[in-house]
């Protein structure tokens, strides 16, 4: 049995999802020879630390009732530097302007020779090259499948499963909130404003939906794909971005009468990175409904490969984090 000592930095929806999945998958992990011991959980107020393994069920309960897991007033970086462990699971909130706590956590993790698995897009969008370099210098593993498309496999699919193929482009729907809004506007013949309000009520859109509806979130995911799959050194500034705020129910209806739906499509190739609403034929593989994400990879040998799945949600995102964890430590 191999013991993996890890910290969970960021205990919002995703961090809690990871804790739940680790509890749920304890027996499975044992069956493949892994014991994942969480030695620290950190949220914005502080940390719970136990070198013998913290009680995840207790952390979840305390977070839900008291709003925090904080027992000791320590930050993520302090935990990384003072607590002995191999893996940092980085699930702090995305900040694409500064990189936020996530960026500091990742650099600190590599400086101390730790592996990192993350769902946090911000640092990767801003400093992909530097982070890869730091990981490489430290000899650390760095995996981030959860940053793009939630549970939907895309980065590992392109780089590992489709290895050897020359990939020409990836096109798809990478933001579930926009897909939900456009789907519902057509179904209900309702305005953007009304459906946005509905999405907020259901928790599908955030209170400040700007990142999603202006196409910024999609653009960040494309930057990660451009760097991780196409080997570019792109940042957010390299993306042409148009969001969905101007789309009208009338436009959706006229398009539908001619056999098309309107979707916010992200597109990345070696030549360009682009986000815009596009007309998609109703029977096209990218014309998925609701909050689903979808991506089509245009490959040299295998033709078009399309994957679809849930792009958000704590458990779904934790599924991608778990698969990265198993990819690093399983079968070793």
């Amino acid at each position: 049995m191999k013991t993996v000592r890890c910290s969970i930095l960021g205990f919002g929806a995703i961090g809690q999802g990871v804790a739940e999945v680790l509890l749920m998958k304890k027996e499975y992990l044992k069956s493949i020879g892994l014991e994942v011991l969480v030695v620290a959980v950190v949220d914005s107020k502080g940390a719970t630390i136990n070198p013998e393994g913290v009680d995840l069920a207790d952390c979840l309960a305390r977070k839900r009732t008291g709003g925090t897991v904080a027992i000791e007033k320590l930050t993520g970086v302090e935990v990384i530097r003072s607590v002995d462990h191999e893996l940092v699971i980085e699930t702090t909130p995305t900040n694409i302007v500064t990189g936020g706590a996530g960026l500091q956590n990742m650099f600190a993790a590599f400086e101390t020779g730790k592996d990192v698995v993350t769902s946090n897009k911000g640092p990767l969008t801003l400093k992909y090259g530097e982070l890869m370099e730091a990981a490489k210098t430290a000899g650390s593993n760095f995996r981030f499948e959860a940053t793009v498309g939630g549970s939907m496999p895309i980065i590992n699919l392109a780089n590992e499963v489709l290895a050897g193929n020359n990939l020409r482009s990836i096109k798809g729907i990478l933001n579930g909130t926009c897909n939900y809004i456009l789907t519902r506007m057509l179904e209900e013949r309702a305005s953007y404003k009304d459906i946005l309000a509905e999405s907020m009520e259901l928790g599908i859109a955030e209170t400040d939906p700007t990142y999603d509806v202006e196409g910024i979130d999609t653009a960040c995911k494309l930057v990660i794909l451009a760097n991780a799959i196409f080997g570019l050194d792109a940042t957010y500034k390299d993306v042409e971005v148009t969001g969905i705020t101007k789309i009208t129910p009338e436009a959706l209806e006229m398009a539908y009468e001619r056999g098309h739906v309107i979707k916010l499509i992200g597109e990345v190739s070696r030549e360009r990175i682009h986000v815009a609403p596009r007309l998609v034929p109703i029977n096209h593989p990218l014309a998925v409904r609701g909050t689903l994400n979808v991506a089509s990879i245009d490959t040299e040998l295998a033709g078009e490969i399309t994957v679809t799945g849930k792009g958000a949600g704590p458990i779904e995102t934790a599924s991608a984090i778990l698969s990265d964890l198993v990819a690093i430590y399983g079968n070793r």
Binding site: K171, T242, K246, I247, A251, A255, H260, I262, K263, I265, E267, H274, A276, P277, R278, L279, V280, P281, H284, L286
Partner: peptide, 11 residues
């Protein structure tokens, strides 16, 4: 004006 083009066109 916002121009929405078909997906198979080079936008």
């Amino acid at each position: 004006l916002l121009m929405v083009l078909p997906i198979d066109i080079h936008a």
